[in-house]
Design a protein around this nucleic acid. Structure first.
Lengths: 128, 128
DNA sequence: CATGTTGCTTGCAAAATGCAAGTAAAAGAC
DNA sequence: GTCTTTTACTTGCATTTTGCAAGCAACATG
């Protein structure tokens, strides 16, 4: 019997961060970056204009700080997020979406719309 | 100092499957159902017309069978997938999307479009 | 009935997660 | 400048999830 999984031939494909792809499927590739319970919530917060570590921590879901640190680094590595000097005049750095990260807008909108329609206990909050 | 995370008051909110919500955010709610590296690939396969356990196993990403079993049960529990008698005349059951599951179409499309645009090593395959 | 296929479950090692605590640089108060 | 607080993390560790291989029972096929 032929092996079912894995790329069948040629050189192994990699995403923009250099990680091996499970398959050439664009969906699978995105899931390797954002396929967990936290990453898209950080991206949501970035869309809401939040830009600092503490801001992400303050979101109602309560992401653990070690997870947040890991996810921000992954997003930096994959080029969805970049760091810039904070706008408040301090020495701190702020996180913001790159064009590649902002391009997830339609994904977040579609997911939000699904939730609002099919999970009645959800609602939009006044955040951002 | 006020606690940053968690629902602040009232009764705990739950999704349609009865699980506690991390927050009222529709995005967070969807991620509690589909927020991992495999679930949306199963849903993708269902959109492609695949309906049997072995079909999902045969996808190029190679989902482990215990994970597949767990994810199918979760999707059943949340009402995104249902089981019906298989169309091939045998005694077996087939999985198929409910309207709630099919409503994820726009999410998958947006994710696919993102991957095709921003991860050049991905492509649509002739599957389905 | 013998053999292969399908749809799982089980066992277990490895990895990821979640929580609390610790830390160091920067900012603000005095 | 010194003291205190805030910010942005890291570390340790217990718990949970994942991934792989194997096992197995119901069904299908010849």
């Amino acid at each position: 019997m032929a092996k079912s999984g894995g790329g069948k031939a040629g050189k192994p494909m990699r995403n923009q961060a250099g990680d091996l792809l499970r398959s050439p499927c664009p969906l699978a590739c995105l899931l390797d970056v954002c396929g967990d319970r936290w990453t898209l919530l950080v991206i949501r917060d970035l869309f809401f204009g939040r830009s600092r570590f503490k801001d992400f921590c303050a979101s109602p879901e309560g992401i653990p700080t070690n997870i947040l640190s890991d996810r921000l680094n992954r997003l930096l590595r994959h080029g969805l997020v970049e760091q810039v000097p904070a706008a408040d005049g301090t020495q701190r750095m702020a996180y913001q979406l790159t064009p590649k990260g902002r391009a997830l807008g339609p994904v977040l909108e579609a997911m939000r719309d699904w939730g609002l329609k099919w999970e009645p206990s959800t609602r939009l909050e006044m955040q951002g």
